[in-house]
Design a protein around this nucleic acid. Structure first.
Lengths: 206, 206, 206, 206
DNA sequence: TATGAATGAGATTTCATTCAT
DNA sequence: CATGAATGAAATCTCATTCAT
């Protein structure tokens, strides 16, 4: 039975199982045994690979944040139009990426979000991502607005994105990604409209 | 110490202590012992008055939602100007009422929110409130917009309010209520601007 | 509310409530609160009148045993025929008295019986009664049998009576007193038959 | 110490420890900690192997009943003489088997018996066994008596057996198995004598 | 006399972690 | 590498008893 090179496979297996467990019963009811059962392994192995339950949870959150960052980055690199509106549009699209808002990832995300209020390690991860989103938005808005307005626009859009996620995660049927994107883009257009910019009308997604 | 007629006093004491405990260490680490210590009573009394921990948590969430509803209602009844814009403005103000966004209540609110994903009873309470907010907003927007636009406006504003709450709860220093209100009102003005309504400029709060 | 002379009334009320509670949920689930609810009083009063739960239980058992002894004594005193067979018949009749085998008393009796294995005080009460039954039976049998046979007859009949009680208490519908009496009398007749005594055939009960 | 394949060993160990604990302090005072101490393991393992205290108690009762059934079956299969009297004699012998009436098993049996009045699961187990005893006795009696008489004989003998057990369990020194068997066999002989059957006189046990 | 508020001990159960195999 | 046996800490709940009113 002993195999070499199992480490990356097992780690991914366990992270996926963690999200499945949180999706199923919530973070509070997620025990190592349940995660292990989802992964089809024994509970003891979690301590082996992650040093303990907390290590696994941290790794899981890290992966969700990494995936989210990646989804945004991919879209921004694919832009032909480098306008601020296009960049921010890509950020919106990335944040409502199918792989993020569908299934286990969304509930896991919100669960960690709430949990991070009182766990310094999770809070740090959260903050890094949060600040990146804000500074990216702010930077793009700055290209067409004065600083004060750009800051408010960035804060408003960030709040809107989070709010849509939140409401989506709480809806039993899951987030309606298309509607969420529509609302976010509409808001974006309104923000730009206040500054006399041209706003491309179509938001058909990838 | 034993006196008669303690029930309502103790119940309120324990609900307050629950919020304090959740604020302090988070829902996951909130034990009945910690709540009892906050209230200066013994742990057993929680089962006596609330039938158990779950009963107390439910009562606590119920109170938060009731307070929130009340804060909105008070402001709407105090309106001299019955315009849609004024009504919606009052709803925003109520949602960022000092007693709601300050201190323990805000974190407790978010904690329950996340928790409600997997607890039917909390979910039900959540849904009732959620739908009331949405239908109130929708109804006012309908007075100045076509149905489809009103729906989107209501969804957008609800998401914005939640998003601001959420980000506020996660910020270590707590929510900056004034900034949040400013962003929400700005968004509201934008929504109305799109339909050529007059938008009163001042949002000095009570 | 304070009344004088309540003591005997309250004591009887609580003893009756204790039997009702044991009948309803069994000795293990019988709490002072449940007893108090049955009696329509508060739990604290039990300690007041009986010094505690154990005191009440002991008083309850004592009453059951007293009632049983009384039921036997009444029948024996009422005998016109002083023959051994008549005396023993009266003992049997008393042991299957309606007030004993019907309703709460029977289950309470068996519950105490089992419990008395490990509670010296109950065991003592049990033993006193037990020995009285045995010595009464033995004494009557001695009038028509040699000592060794009388002893065995007494032991056998005592076992038969207990066994019928036991099986009756376990039967959901309760003990069928008539059938039990019939079996006990039949056994008695057989015991006498072995020694050539005349055995009156009729066992119609009081 | 952890080894594989411990499950059956631990289960038996815990069942035995349960009987020891009940024998020692009675069912009411038997805590999982005490059982665990008897078995030399930690309390948590009881939930691990039996799902909880109730599961262990049920398993214990099941084992006692199984052992009892086995003790009877062994004797009946060993019979050379297939007469009704021999069969019933074997049933009596089995019911007063040394392993049953000696030590912890007897007290545990009675404790469960009383407890089964209010626990459906135990009651079911009890009933199955009870009915088997009755129907076995009845069937054998039917071979030499009319139906009505056979039924009464079976009921009487069953009551006698239970009564002897009961009194034995309550006697501090434990049941005197020889005396109990003697009384039961004597009763059996009397039952047969009433129908003119030959009754072998010797009841020396295995 | 009687209540019910309150406590604190004790019981069960869950669970993350460790460790021998 | 992987298992599952086992522990011990912690959490919730129950309950008899006490006591001020």
């Amino acid at each position: 039975m002993p195999k070499v090179g199992m480490e990356p496979i097992r780690r991914q297996q366990l992270i996926t199982a963690t999200m499945a467990a949180i999706d199923e019963v919530g973070l509070a009811e997620t025990t190592v045994m349940r995660i292990a059962r989802h992964a089809g392994v024994s509970a003891g192995i979690i301590s082996h690979y992650f040093g303990g339950k907390d290590g696994l949870l941290e790794a899981t959150m890290r992966q969700i944040l990494t995936d989210l960052t990646g989804a945004v980055a991919v879209r921004r690199h694919a832009l032909e139009d480098g306008s601020p509106h296009a960049h921010i549009g890509a950020i919106i699209e990335g944040n409502f990426d199918r792989t993020q808002v569908t299934g286990p990832a969304a509930k896991t995300w919100l669960a960690f979000w709430a949990s991070s209020m009182h766990k310094p390690m999770l809070q740090r991860l959260q903050n890094v991502n949060d600040r990146r989103l804000y500074s990216n938005l702010c930077h793009q808005f700055r290209r067409v607005m004065p600083r004060a307005e750009a800051r408010n626009a960035a804060r408003g859009l960030a709040a809107m994105i989070d709010g849509l996620w939140l409401r989506g995660a709480l809806t039993p049927e899951g987030l309606d990604a298309d509607e969420a994107r529509l609302l976010a883009h509409t808001y974006l257009d309104q923000l730009f409209a206040h500054y006399g910019c041209t706003t491309p009308a179509s938001h058909t997604n990838s």
